[in-house]
Amino acid sequence: MTSIGRRLGPAGLVGSAAVAVLLGYESSLSPPVGVAIAAAGVVATAAMRFGRSPGVRELAIGPMLVALAVVTITAPLSALSELWAGLGGVVAIVWLVDDPDRAPGGITRGATTIAIPALAVGIAWSSALLLPGGTLTFGITAALLVLVLAGVAVLLGRPDLFDRDEVTSYGDRE
């Protein structure tokens, strides 16, 4: 039986709640409304992780992503908002990896899946912070993201790109 603690996923829950509330507080909506939206998303996701249907649990992260998107869109343009937004995406992955339906230790096993997006966010945020700002930088960032999107679309259409033929020794053939 999965315990309540495992169902909640403490690392993901605390991280997501903190980031979402910070973003909600900073959003151009009034602070109580922003915080309420962020909190509602986190609570809904936490509740869906207790769902009976596997399909509900599978897509439990959805409400939190929607809440994060709302408070992110309404957040003012600042280095801190960008950082919280990037961290929001990363903690969403952390929460996902801490899956109560799977064996414990998901965060350790999924370190690659967490680290690569975190690295991408780190590079993007430090570039935005250190490089001179302006519409040119924004255009380059958008273009890079479009390229990433196109690359992901190609990968989705060609999953065999990740495949590799099994090695067969002469002994196996015999």
Partner: peptide, 20 residues
């Protein structure tokens, strides 16, 4: 640009998972 920072990890994560 703020929504871009939220979108970036969401777009990269599936490819990172596929690499592992």
């Amino acid at each position: 640009p703020v929504p871009l920072f939220l979108g970036l990890p969401l777009l990269v994560a599936p490819a990172a998972a596929a690499l592992s």
